[in-house]
């Protein structure tokens, strides 16, 4: 089998891997790097459980091939454990009851995070749009939207 050498940045550190070109980013993360926070739900782009950030934008890692990673910056949920904004989102997810089985949570958090990086004061519609590609079978979304809203309020300066 043919292998390709690919260099990219994973959670802030430069990495180099040798993998078959048909390998998906999702499998590279889970198998090569043992980063299992990224989940496989559907494998066909429909559920968002596999969401990661590519150059800061939310993407589906189940639809990305190894070769497409060359020169990019990939951030997974593990890469943001010490990030203030991510920690705030995580706390609010817990407080609002936005986590039940937890399968959708890493992807949901990353979609919310990508939104807040772009726009610290999104409207409820912006929030709904940002998580439209993340399926949750447990919560009914209300608590998730609340948790994200709460994170925007606490982030924004009330005097402004």
């Amino acid at each position: 089998m043919k292998f390709s050498t690919i260099k990219f940045e994973l959670n802030g550190k430069p990495v180099e891997i040798e993998v078959p070109p048909a390998m998906r980013l999702l499998d590279i993360l889970r198998e090569t790097f043992k980063l299992t926070g990224t989940k496989e739900g559907c494998g066909i782009g429909e559920c968002g459980a596999c969401t990661v950030l590519l150059n800061g934008q939310a993407v589906a890692s189940c639809l990305l091939l190894a070769g497409q990673l060359e020169g990019t910056k990939i951030t997974t949920i593990e890469g943001l454990v010490h990030d203030e904004r991510m920690n705030l989102l995580q706390r609010n997810f817990l407080e609002c009851g936005a986590v039940q089985c937890g399968f959708c949570t890493p992807g949901m958090l990353l979609s919310a995070y990508a939104l807040l990086q772009k726009d610290a004061r999104p409207t409820t519609d912006d929030i709904k749009n940002a998580i439209a590609g993340n399926l949750c079978r447990c919560t009914g979304y209300k608590q998730i939207i609340q948790a994200i809203q709460k994170s925007t309020e606490s982030l924004s300066d009330p005097d402004q």
């Binding site: 968002g48 589906a60 749009n129």
Partner: peptide, 9 residues
């Protein structure tokens, strides 16, 4: 078209 993730890709 599709979701934000797929729109970015």
């Amino acid at each position: 078209i599709a979701s934000p993730q797929l729109g970015n890709m």
